[in-house]
């Protein structure tokens, strides 16, 4: 593939690889530590707009290769939106269907996007009253479909499928290593399924065991789609504590304020999970003072305007004549 001509036979050829990485961009206004440059890896430059293209593609290819997507059988997957959008777009472009099981708190924009790219949508109520043993409602409903109707559905299960980790081990990790020419000292990530952190960290640690892996989490009761806090991490079977040096807990509202700052001062249209990661990175650059940091910015702000207005009321003011 010759990425220099930027002419492709199909959308799948745009999916990132070591030779065709998503961009790294240095922060120039908001980083107070000149001895510790911070680079944002713009995952929204993926063809379907988020880091989840990587996992979705790996999950889909695996099902195809194992012959599990047959006539009349599509996919079912629990998703906070991004995986569903990537998976639906990829699956439909290859002739398969996807039923996306989505928690109600997922922003309206994502739900509508899922329908636009051709997913069937099942929206379920959010968790009512936390309890042991319950797991996650969207995961349970997706599992129910896969178990009760195996002739109609196969569930890739991004929360447990090793292909999710492998996608980052074979793409995100090598891309960052090459783009930083091996200089990376700190990786800043968020935790959802933990595919990103586990795959990328594993690769980077093999290259340089001293690379620090910093995971940033929202406080409990948060409203940052795609992420889980410590109390919710149990559902992510892909989390490997040995691969993480620090887990920072950040007030979830800062995800929104930092995202808007990145938009206004850096021209980086970062979404809330990127804002949260950036806040965590600021904490560490002040602590460690020297280094070479890479922040994985999972997606951009466009899908979150309704959430933004909720958390930054100023944005909702003056919209009517």
């Amino acid at each position: 593939m010759n990425h220099q001509t930027r002419v492709y036979d199909n959308i799948f050829e745009l999916l990132p690889t070591e030779q065709n990485p998503t961009p790294l961009v240095r922060l120039n206004q908001l980083n107070p530590m000149p001895g510790f440059p911070l680079y944002a890896k713009l995952e929204w430059m993926n063809p379907f707009g988020s880091v989840k293209d990587r996992a979705a593609w790996a999950l889909l290819r695996d099902l195809e290769e194992r012959g599990l997507l047959t006539e009349g059988r599509g996919l079912v997957e629990p998703t906070s939106g991004n995986t569903g959008i990537s998976l639906a777009a990829l699956a439909r472009a290859r002739g398969h269907r996807l039923l996306a099981v989505v928690p109600n708190k997922v922003p309206q924009e994502k739900k509508i996007l899922l329908k636009i790219v051709g997913a069937d949508l099942e929206v379920i109520s959010d968790e009512l009253c936390p309890a042991p043993g319950l797991g996650d409602g969207s995961i349970n409903l997706a599992k129910t479909h896969a178990k009760a109707s195996p002739q109609k559905y196969v569930m890739p299960n991004q929360y447990e499928n090793a292909k999710n980790v492998e996608a980052h081990y074979t793409t995100t990790g090598p891309e960052i290593w090459r783009q930083t020419e091996g200089r990376i000292t700190h990786l800043f990530v968020s935790l959802g399924t933990c595919g990103t952190v586990s795959g990328t960290a594993k690769f980077l640690r093999e290259k340089n065991p001293d690379v620090k892996i910093i995971a940033v989490q929202p406080t409990e009761g948060h409203d940052v789609p795609g992420l889980r806090n410590v109390a919710q991490l149990g559902v992510s079977k892909l989390f490997d504590a040995a691969l993480v040096d620090d887990i920072l807990e950040v007030d979830f509202r800062l995800a929104y304020t930092r995202a808007v700052e990145l938009c206004r001062h850096e021209g980086l249209l970062a979404g809330p999970s990127s804002g949260l990661i950036f806040e965590g990175a600021l904490e560490i650059v002040r602590r460690d003072q020297h280094g070479h940091g890479v922040m994985i910015f999972p997606d951009n702000i466009f899908k979150y305007t309704s959430n933004l207005v909720k958390h930054i009321p100023e944005l909702g003011a003056g919209l009517q004549p």
Partner: peptide, 11 residues
């Protein structure tokens, strides 16, 4: 169930 979709999805 609390979630009335669950039975239809599989029981």
């Amino acid at each position: 169930d609390v979630d009335s979709k669950a039975y239809a999805a599989g029981h």
